[in-house]
């Protein structure tokens, strides 16, 4: 860890001012940032502590949705009665991540901004284009079992590691952002970026912008599933995860909102996958077709080739379960 200035931001405007500067990072729960600072993967000159800005409430919105304060903890969010009853996929996704201790400290805004767990990113003595642009990608010919199969580039094959954002993507949530140029709302599905030639850019936040909340749309009907596949049954990142909101009407899919974790540099949402199911009667052939669409451009890097059949099978499992639950 390098020496750094610690400043408690007294207001949102000041937090924005501070983080607009070079080399200043906002800190909320710090569960990811502090680890990375100890490893010198992150070396901010200043931390702007945003924990006392408020934005920690979970409240109903006028249209029947729910606003999750950016600084509400993951635990508070997962156990909130409305999250549990109206957005169970979100509650389940949060509880599938990290450990109770980490979730008690981690915040919703911070969770969206967590960084990849690629082995080469977290080791400063190894090449990583994300950490040190131009140094190369250690993972492409290295140990890449956890790495991406969709949306990769020759610069980076890291995954976005989180669970919560996968559920938010399926739910069609939006991120509320405040900065010196004003406020804006961005769909979660557009919040994270693919690596392309700029793998160090992981989301659309500009300098000086702070996440203030996450807005869930009014609840919809149907079955909500969060399925996380992993080697050990807790405290492990997803090999593949699926967030699904599925509704059947007259034996046919009338809603199929699907998002995937562990596959890409962002929670993966391909609208064509859900669309191909709509109006159709569930069948193995249909599930295969959905998987074909999802995995059309999938590419493995040796060690992670298995993610392609695993994703197909996990999608089958989720759609079968949803169909049974609906029946």
């Amino acid at each position: 860890m390098r020496p750094f200035q610690y400043t408690r931001a007294p207001s949102l405007a000041e937090a924005s001012n501070l983080t607009a500067g070079e080399n200043t990072l906002a800190i909320a729960g710090g569960t990811n940032l502090l680890d990375l600072m100890k490893l010198q993967v992150e070396t901010p000159g200043q931390l702007a502590d945003i924990n006392r800005l408020g934005y920690a409430d979970i409240e109903d919105t006028d249209d029947g949705g729910l606003r999750l304060g950016a600084l509400a903890t993951n635990t508070e969010t997962a156990v909130h009665p409305r999250v549990r009853s109206d957005y169970p996929v979100l509650s389940r996704a949060i509880l599938a991540g990290a450990t109770q201790q980490l979730r008690n400290k981690a915040t919703n805004g911070g969770n969206l901004c967590q960084r990849t767990r690629c082995f080469y990113f977290t080791n400063i003595d190894q090449p990583c284009n994300k950490r040190e642009p131009g140094s190369g990608c250690g993972a492409i010919d290295g140990i890449a079992k956890l790495h991406a199969i969709l949306g990769t580039s020759d610069q980076c094959i890291a995954t976005y590691p989180g669970d919560m954002a996968v559920a938010l993507s399926a739910l069609g949530a939006t991120v509320e952002i405040s900065g010196d140029k004003g406020e804006r709302s961005v769909p979660v599905r557009d919040f994270h970026c693919l690596p392309g030639d700029t793998p160090w850019i992981e989301n659309i936040l500009e300098r000086g912008e702070i996440i203030t909340g996450i807005v869930l749309p009014a609840p919809v009907g149907g079955t909500q599933i969060y399925r996380k596949v992993r080697e050990r049954s807790s405290y492990a990142f997803a090999l593949v995860s699926v967030a699904a909101i599925i509704e059947l009407t007259d034996g046919k899919f009338s809603r199929a909102d699907l998002a995937f974790g562990g596959l890409a540099h962002k929670p993966w949402h391909d609208p064509r996958v859900g669309e191909c199911l709509l109006g159709q009667v569930p069948s193995d052939a249909l599930f295969d077709k959905a998987a074909d669409i999802l995995l059309e451009d999938a590419r493995g890097f040796g060690e992670n080739d298995f993610k392609i059949p695993l994703t197909r099978r996990t999608l089958h499992a989720v759609l079968s379960q949803a169909t049974e639950d609906a029946a």
Binding site: R117, F119, N123, Q126, G138, D141, G142, I143, S234, A236
Partner: peptide, 20 residues
Amino acid sequence: FDPRDGHLVNCDLAEYHVPV
């Protein structure tokens, strides 16, 4: 282990998976 320099890549308790 990395196949090119032999370094141990999963060198913490988050990535070396002992049973929970």
